[in-house]
Design a protein around this nucleic acid. Structure first.
Length: 472
RNA sequence: GCCCCCUUCGUCUAGUGGUUAGGACGCAAGAUUUUCAUUCUUGAAACAGGAGUUCGAUUCUCCUAGGGGGUGCCA
């Protein structure tokens, strides 16, 4: 019987949850779910100076928004300090670690020399105890093996061997007695019962060092899977310009969590030719075998496409409530042509079926819905102005209002038939009529279909808006 | 410098010792059409380069180039 899977996401709280971290979390989450295991969260705050509460909150809310809830309360690495020290002492006692002291210039010289020799650095204290007077200010270093090699059996990268003379004697305990990352991950992963470590491949070399620590402790080594990093659109490392934003930035840009999740899952992982993958399918299909070895670039255009798909496929009520929380979260930054308080959500939802066809993001949805909440008289765009001042525009519009107001019922079929009949009677191509209506009703030359607009605005508002233009 | 990893259309990817190298985004053209979009159809577009193994390599091996990571009392 095999152990049940336990994965973890272990961010260091020095910034927001960026897109690469989000994908790592997603993979860990998906793998645990796929295998019926557990997904845990550990906050790696051993660097007390750079860790902030704000970052912790951002990570938590980011995960929450993505729906990647850990199965247990998050573990804070800083709270495990006593245990880390205990293990370091155990290593010291078993001869797998040593106390070392050297001032900055000595350390620098040692490194220079090691570098020139093409081998990893070893430090004073490794072979002989250091002088008593330095114990107080010493660090505890791992006594890494020199001969042989360390092999990482990576589920993604394959078998990777690194000669032991390339792996240096890393610090386990700082001179102030606090544990370093390298010690803490090993101890915590072990203590938390982590079976699978899925993380960015910037940790690949670290894995070798960690394996040495596991071995020194006679602990089982977890399964490693080092996934390639995400790059920006230009192939360079992710920067703010192209994607290294916090996940909440994507929320603010109007992306749906299902869409971002789908896109992220598909970035570096695949299941045949599948593109649109629901959460259920992801859980059913996800496996480390499907993860790619090469780095992927972040492509906003594709994210847009996926998002547009989810907007069209989702339940209206669901999307509308997303819009609502988006506005509550950051209306000020959105730069909309109207105020959130002007929104009539009932109207918005009723119009959703035709609004969704032209929206790739929630922001675009709101933008095309703007005409619904515009105040009379509707402001005209430059192009709309031109069209409404064209030859015979007023005349046609006048006749149209008359016809429309004579309609006994304000329903789609009615309106359509009325307008078509009008077009035939007046011997006017529909292309002569529709633009005038569109401009006077929305102030723009781009909008949803004319019948949809008329219907969604309602009889009174529609007629009034046209009148506004006639009496200009 | 040294060590490690990566390389299929512009991008995300499927795939195999013999395929017309497939899909998706994007792009182009067309259809639908009252604009924009949606939708549909069609098209252009890739195995980084060089050796080797082999009857045959995109696929296996090596080298080179390019990209990335590590080399911290950061994680």
């Amino acid at each position: 019987m095999t152990k049940s899977v336990v994965t973890r996401f272990a961010p260091s709280p020095t910034g927001y949850l960026h897109i690469g971290g989000a994908r790592t979390a997603l993979f860990n989450w998906a793998y645990a779910r796929a295998k019926g295991g557990k997904f845990l969260l550990r906050i790696e705050d051993t660097d007390r100076e750079r860790s902030t509460q704000g970052a912790i909150d951002a990570i938590l809310s980011g995960l929450n928004w993505l729906g990647l809830e850990p199965d247990e309360a998050p573990l804070f690495q800083s709270k495990q300090q006593a245990r880390h020290v205990e293990v370091a002492e155990q290593l010291l006692a078993s001869g797998h670690a040593y106390r070392s002291y050297a001032d900055d210039s000595e350390v620098e010289a040692i490194r220079q020399k090691a570098r020139a020799d093409g081998v990893a650095a070893r430090y004073p204290g490794r072979d002989e105890p250091i002088a008593e007077q330095f114990i107080e200010q010493s660090v505890v270093r791992f006594k890494a093996p020199i001969d042989g090699e360390t092999v990482i059996d990576d589920e993604v990268q394959g078998q990777v061997s690194i000669r032991n003379d390339q792996l240096d004697d890393l610090v386990l305990l700082r001179s102030d007695g606090t544990p370093t990352y390298m010690l803490a991950v090993v101890v915590d992963d072990h203590d938390m019962g982590i079976t699978h470590v899925i993380r960015g491949d910037d940790h690949l070399t670290n894995a070798a060092k960690q394996i040495q620590i596991y071995q020194a402790l006679s602990w089982d080594v977890p399964v490693f899977a080092h996934i390639p990093l995400i790059h920006g659109a230009d192939g360079a490392k992710l920067s703010k310009r192209h994607g290294a934003l916090g996940v909440e930035a994507y929320q603010a840009m109007g992306y749906l969590t299902e869409a971002l999740r789908n896109y992220l899952a598909r970035l570096g992982w695949s299941h045949g030719d599948e593109e649109i993958i629901s959460t259920e399918q992801l859980i059913e299909w996800f496996d480390i075998q499907g993860i790619n070895k090469s780095p992927a670039r972040f492509d906003m255009a594709k994210l847009d496409h996926v998002n547009g798909h989810y907007i069209r496929e989702s339940e209206p009520a669901v999307v509308i409530s997303e819009v609502k929380s988006l506005l509550e979260m950051c209306e000020d930054e959105l730069n909309l042509p109207f105020k959130a308080e002007q929104i009539d959500y009932k109207k918005l939802q009723a119009s959703f079926p035709f609004l969704k066809e032209r929206a790739k993001t929630l922001i675009e949805l709101l933008e095309t819905a703007a005409y619904l909440f515009a105040e009379r008289p509707v402001a005209l765009s430059e192009k709309a102005e031109t069209i409404l001042s064209g030859d015979g525009a007023g005349e046609i519009l006048g006749a149209v209002v008359e016809r429309l107001s004579g309609l006994d019922q304000w329903e789609k079929d009615n309106i359509e038939q009325g307008l078509k009949a009008f077009s035939v009677e007046k011997e006017l191509k529909f292309g002569k009529i529709a633009p005038l209506l569109r401009c006077s009703l929305t102030g723009s030359t781009v909008s949803p279909g004319i019948y949809d607009i008329l219907l969604s605005l309602g009889r009174d508002e529609s007629l009034s808006r046209i009148q506004d233009q006639l009496s200009r």
